[in-house]
Design a protein around this nucleic acid. Structure first.
Lengths: 224, 224
DNA sequence: CAAATAATTAAACGATGAATTAATTTAGAT
DNA sequence: ATCTAAATTAATTCATCGTTTAATTATTTG
């Protein structure tokens, strides 16, 4: 009598729900974004996204059509809006290299703080070969930004305001490696070092100190 | 008459081959390693590995059993041997922080130069959530190494030989972000900066310069 | 209050993947 | 030469995935 009973309290029957939310589409977008970041765009199944959102896979088809268009919606309505402020902030930052690096570090820190899904998504879908967002990132999210930064660093180097032993282009790479990468790896090194307490402020201070003076004690020409 | 013909020159018929190589197992391991690094352990199909190696998927079953044991063989016979030298080198490096960071940077550079598959594999299978090699790396490949480095940095800091504004644990993270990460991202920034010419030597010099003095021009207490 | 429409589930289809089995061909031993 | 064991392919099985369709229920509208 588990199936025949009509009023056996089924978990959910078919049919239009009673006066529900209009923001289910947003809920689906969030579920998809979370799973894309945690499991990977290609690896995650529409079934899993639907299950996390508490609906059937057919709902994703109803709202978005297919997986490619679901991804497109996530890009347009979640990824690009999240990165737009960073881009604007970097574009009108000063030309002094120290101020510029600081603006970058703080900008990444801010974006990551308000969008925790960004670092893992960036690692899997931009850094990894064959990721689904590499072109999107450089063509639509932050087009020209790496080149802009490298040019400013090169100009500062020509003016004698940047460590002459650095490569202006590689400095952009180093900045990403000191900000986005530690954010993405946080679960790993938090566990490895038993360091749940290491918060964003400590990270910020550490990164700025490393960029500012390097590893050693400041004793070049220092008196005592 | 395409199927009935017995001597129709099929691309490859069944049966034991004529006096072939004994190192086919090694060839399969290499094919699997390459595909694991390029496409991902979970994402790559045994069909694709077999096709790249020029055999049928059943050969992988014959030599390794299943996908899990194929991965195990790749770990034991490729990954662990590749990382063993780095581990040894770091364990008996000096305690001076500058020398230690330099040993780390050069060690990673060496390993990456001789094993180009390592950076992408590390990103996808260690850095990414749910990667298949995270436990393996920290439990078997380099157990205790991050903690060892952090302790040495902390000791050096207590002795006044390390920039006091740094966090010894985060410095380990920063080192990885300045070495393995740029290596993994090389295809990206090579294209972004049109910089095919940027070789390992330039990267090494840049990284050591950044770690040694930071971004700014060295003008603390500098006379002229 | 009835008809149309919107939202949702259930079920099914075709494709693909991992794993296994059976058949086939050759190499080496006797 | 013959027999046995090794190496290899072809074919099969079961699970899962993306997608689509049909059925079902609620809401809106005339």
């Amino acid at each position: 009598m588990t199936i025949s009973g009509k009023r056996a309290k089924p978990p959910r029957r078919a049919g239009r729900p009673s006066g529900d939310d209009q923001d289910l589409r947003r809920h689906l977008l969030d579920a998809a974004l979370g799973q894309f970041a945690r499991t990977g765009i290609a690896a995650i199944s529409l079934r899993a996204i639907a299950t996390e959102a508490g609906v059937t896979p057919a709902m994703l088809h109803y709202y978005f059509g297919d997986k490619a268009r679901l991804l497109h919606a996530v890009i347009d309505e979640r990824l690009l809006p999240a990165l737009a402020p960073l881009r604007a902030q970097l574009e009108h930052a000063g030309s002094d290299p120290v101020a510029l690096t600081e603006a970058f570090v703080r900008g990444i820190s801010d974006v990551v703080a308000s969008h925790p899904w960004l670092p893992p998504l960036w690692v899997r879908e931009v850094l990894c070969e064959g990721g689904a967002l590499r072109e999107v990132l450089f063509d639509r999210a932050v087009p020209g930004v790496p080149q802009l930064l490298a040019q400013r660093f090169a100009a500062a180097q020509a003016n004698g305001r940047l460590n002459p032993a650095l490569d202006p282009r590689l400095l952009v790479v180093s900045l990403v490696g000191l900000t986005l990468f530690p954010a993405a790896g946080a679960p790993i090194w938090r566990r490895a070092f038993d360091a749940e307490s290491l918060g964003p402020e400590t990270m910020l201070q550490h990164t700025l100190a490393l960029l500012g003076q390097g590893v050693g004690t400041t004793k070049r020409g220092e008196p005592a």
